[in-house]
Nucleic acid binder design. Structure first.
Length: 589
RNA sequence: GCGGGCGUAACUCAGUGGUAGAGUGACAGCCUUCCAAGCUGUACGUCGAGGGUUCGAAUCCCUUCGCCCGCUCCA
């Protein structure tokens, strides 16, 4: 999320959510049971709209990638699809780094008025100890060990562990003995701590060095000759005395124990499975399925690098705080392409996809200045990524900032290398178009690990952005609320209205409906409505985002023409009845 | 997880301890009319849920669930 340009007139998220429910775009999951936090269902219009978005992605990324453009290599871009499972071998997620990486321990400050929530591994602590005390402690510690304290303790272990398991009772006794033994050791010298939030040890030390300490503390440090004993992460196992100050408010000892927030959704395989031996995970991204089948696709399909493999489907993340309507759902759908190429061409391909993906979102209705392409700063990049850009949309709830719609990442060879290492299966590629030319004119070939460019889009976020962008309030219209959805995305493609429900108009409408349904019924809904006033029918279609309404009136019966009403302008034109299908076909693209 | 706000019909909301309401929408009929028009009628409620106080709770108290905002995380 970034912040720069000032916000346009903000749209009301409450009004958008109300319309979504009223017209059947989005409902809360398990609504009649009071809802379930972080899950949303799609109603009839929402389901069709999301399908249209997914279809558009599939057409423009798999069947006709990048609209038939030629890539940096001068050739037509080639992509194939896969469909991989939500549940994979548990080791997949260790290899991908999700099990470790998504296990961010969090710490909160208990002080009233602060209550700041932080990632424990981002909190760095500098421990300062009185130099004199420290030397004395180190000396006495050595003395204690020399006097046989350590051996005495070891002897206990030997006795108790000899050939038998410890009962609960024995374990308690041992702990008691251990604590007595520990009390005889020299105590750790009194210390003084400062803390800060930083991404690395170097950064933390730089902050500590530049830190403006209160005069009183500075004097104390000088007088007693404190020395920096060590710098450690709050999350690391340490002998912490619970007196670490909060990096935000400075209150000592107000930090809670690091608590793991596991973003992976665990599950059990098998009807009688138990957690220990049959634990599996619901995927946090569809991308890994592509890497897992990379070798099979190469071996079974006549694909040559460079080429892409696309995958769409549901993913799961146990978000800390699912919020902002469907923006951060715990269950969400992704549309991801993994594009494999030679390392030397990877940066060109990265730029190619980054620019195309931006244009693509613009082409389906996010054409305004609410959409931006943002290149990540160096310090934002993942450890494996050479470059990453986000396509970001200024949602009403992020304004004046932006929220991520799609990330285009240069992942290098990280994923294939990881899976090769963890699975023990070779995943490198033999490229027969490279290497030195042999006497017979063919190439010697080159073996390498392909690099990967990943445009990864969130379809639910896409739908939400399209709805937010389309939502318009125009008080000067008889129907002030409307959805200016792009015809390609709109769930209702056209509506046919007999002006009056008599005089042969319904019959003409019926015929037109049959024709349009046959031609466009597979792209979305075609509606026919003869009830109530014409204004009411137009207004209903405006709210549902239907781009065109065709009305049959008296003149249709005599002159064979209908009026076509444009949703966005409200303007009407007369066109020939037999030209309606051609008109609509052109508009729907 | 912590803090703040909210929860009454499909939607917007009124109702502060005494029979659950209004407008809009939906549906049916009439009217026949190019922009939420008019008339008639119909249906619609676990007052978010559970417990407590009370003769009596939408209303007061406790607990809980959900939504919105902030800290934080991400596609």
């Amino acid at each position: 999320m970034t912040t720069d340009t000032p916000a346009a007139a903000p749209k009301s998220m409450d009004a958008i959510m109300a319309l979504c429910k009223r017209r059947g775009f989005i409902f809360q999951a398990s609504d009649i049971y009071g809802g379930i936090n972080g899950f949303w269902d799609y109603g009839p219009l929402g389901a069709q709209m999301k399908k249209n978005l997914r279809e558009a992605w599939w057409q423009d990324m798999i069947l006709n990638p990048a609209w038939g453009r030629k890539g940096p290599n001068g050739e037509r871009v080639k992509c194939v699809p896969v469909e991989t499972r939500i549940i994979q071998h548990p080791k997949v997620w260790e290899a991908s780094g999700h099990v470790g990486g998504f296990n961010d321990p969090m710490t909160m400050c208990k002080t009233d008025g602060c209550k700041k929530l932080m990632r424990s591994d981002h909190i760095w602590v500098a421990r300062l100890v009185k130099e004199a005390d420290w030397r004395s402690y180190a000396g006495r510690q050595a003395q204690w060990e020399a006097s046989g304290g350590r051996e005495w303790r070891r002897a206990f272990f030997g006795l108790l562990f000899q050939g038998k398991r410890l009962s609960e009772e024995e374990r308690r006794d041992l702990n008691l003995i251990m604590s007595i033994s520990a009390s005889e050791r020299p105590s750790y010298p009194a210390d003084f701590k400062v803390s800060t939030i930083a991404g690395s040890r170097e950064e933390a030390i730089a902050i500590f060095e530049a830190m403006e300490l209160p005069a009183k503390v500075r004097k104390m440090i000088e007088k007693d000759q404190y020395m920096l004993e060590r710098v450690y992460r709050f999350a690391d196992p340490i002998e912490d005395d619970g007196k670490t100050p909060c990096p935000s408010c400075g209150t000592a000892g107000s930090m809670t124990e690091p608590k793991a927030f596991n973003l992976m959704f665990p599950t059990i395989i098998g009807a009688t499975g138990d957690w220990e031996s049959n634990k599996a995970y619901l995927r946090p991204e569809t991308a890994q399925g592509v890497f897992l089948q990379f070798k099979n696709v190469v071996d079974s399909t006549r694909v040559r690098i460079p080429f892409g493999i696309g995958n769409t489907g549901t993913s799961f993340r146990n978000e800390v705080t699912p919020r902002n309507f469907t923006f951060r759902s715990r269950e969400f759908e992704q549309a991801e392409l993994e594009f494999f190429c030679h390392p030397s061409e990877s940066f060109e391909w990265y730029k190619f996809w980054r620019d195309f993906r931006m244009q693509w979102w613009q082409s389906i209705g996010l054409a305004g200045e609410n959409l931006i392409l943002r290149e990540h700063d160096k310090d934002e990049l993942s450890h494996y990524s050479v470059g990453t850009s986000d396509v970001e949309y200024r949602f009403p709830f992020t304004a004046p900032g932006y929220g991520e719609l799609e990330g285009i990442a240069h992942r290098g060879d990280y994923d294939l290398t990881q899976h090769q290492k963890h699975s023990g299966t070779k995943l490198d590629y033999f490229d027969t178009t490279r290497g030195e030319t042999l006497p017979n004119g063919s190439k010697k070939g080159e073996r390498y690990m392909p690099h990967c460019i990943e445009p990864a889009a969130g379809l639910d976020r896409g739908v939400l952005a399209l709805l937010c962008e389309a939502y318009t309030v125009d008080a000067s219209r008889p129907s002030p609320e409307l959805l200016k959805l792009h015809p390609r995305i709109a769930p209702i493609k056209a509506a046919i209205f007999p002006l009056m429900d008599k005089d042969g108009m319904p019959e003409v409408a019926e015929k037109l409906y049959d024709e349009l349904f046959a031609k466009f019924g597979k792209t979305g809904f075609i509606e026919m409505d003869a009830k109530q006033s014409i204004g009411k029918r137009y207004a209903r279609m405006d709210e549902a985002g239907c781009p065109y309404c065709f009305t049959i009136d008296q003149e249709t019966l005599t002159a064979q023409t209908v009026t076509v009403r444009d949703r966005d302008t409200g303007k009407q034109d007369r066109i020939a009845l037999d030209k309606v299908a051609a008109f609509l076909g052109e508009k729907l693209g």
